[in-house]
Design a protein around this nucleic acid. Structure first.
Lengths: 106, 106
DNA sequence: TAAATTTGCAACCAATTGGTTTCTTAAAAA
DNA sequence: TTTTTAAGAAACCAATTGGTTGCAAATTTA
C-alpha cells in the first residue's frame, strides 16, 4: 500500500484532522466528536496519516494521543516550490522537467 | 463526483502531467509518451484535471492541447498558508481552528 | 473484583479509482 | 476519395477507498 503525503491530504476529513491536531495532540474520540462519522472511521484516517508519517501516536494510560509530525508536511511545500520554479521560467525548459521527473522517479 | 485540487494532485501521474504542461501545453498523445500507460488512461487523468479546472482544453485542428490554469494551483498554496498560520501560533488556538473549519464547510 | 471506557483490529460493503479494450467521430494526408 | 491519425466515449475489470458493525484487549473507575 504505497502511501504518500499527497494521498493523505486528498481526503477533506484528513485535512481537517491535520488542522485540529496541528493545534494540539488529540485522541481518536476527541477527534471523532468534530465529525459526522464514527470513531472507527476517524481511526482509519489516523492509520493512513500515521502510515505516511504525518502523525505520531503517543500512548498515555488507556488513551492514545496523536500529534502532528511537521517534517512530512514540508514535502507538500517542496513539491509546490518545484512547481513554481518550473512555472516561473517555463519557456524552453522541457528538457529540465524531464530530467527532474526522471531523477524523482528512481 | 465531488472533485477538488487535492484529489487531483493525489495521483503521481497527474502530478507529473501538471509539471509537463506547466512548461508548455501538450496533447494527450504527447503526454502519454512520457508514461507507461495508454493514451486513454492519460485522457482520464486529463478529464479529472479539467473537472476541477486545473487545466483547459484548446482544440487545434484534430489535436487538443491541454494547458495549465494557474489559478486553481493557488488553492493548495492557500491551504498550506492557513495551516502554517495555525502551526506557528498553535497554543490556545483551538477555538479559532474550529471557527475556521465551520466557516470553510458551508 | 466488576463495570465502564478507550482503542485497535477484522470482516464486510458499496462506491470510486486507475486501468484496459473497443468503437466512433473528425481532421489531415495520400 | 480513401486511409491514416488524434482523441473522446462507453463498457468493463480488479483494486482501493471510506465507511460500517462487532469484538477483544487494556486501563480506569466504582
Amino acid at each position: 500500500m504505497r502511501r504518500d503525503v499527497f494521498q493523505a491530504i486528498a481526503d477533506p476529513t484528513r485535512r481537517a484532522i491535520i488542522m485540529l491536531i496541528a493545534v494540539q495532540a488529540m485522541t481518536p474520540n476527541a477527534l471523532a466528536s468534530h465529525f459526522d462519522t464514527t470513531r472507527q472511521a476517524v481511526s482509519k484516517h489516523l492509520k493512513i496519516l500515521a502510515e505516511c508519517e504525518l502523525i505520531r501516536a503517543e500512548s498515555q494510560g488507556r488513551e492514545i494521543y496523536y500529534r502532528l509530525e511537521i517534517d512530512k508536511m514540508q514535502e507538500i511545500d517542496k513539491w509546490l516550490a518545484e512547481f513554481k520554479k518550473i512555472w516561473e521560467s517555463r519557456f524552453n525548459q522541457l528538457d529540465d522537467v524531464l530530467a527532474l521527473m526522471k531523477s524523482n522517479k528512481k
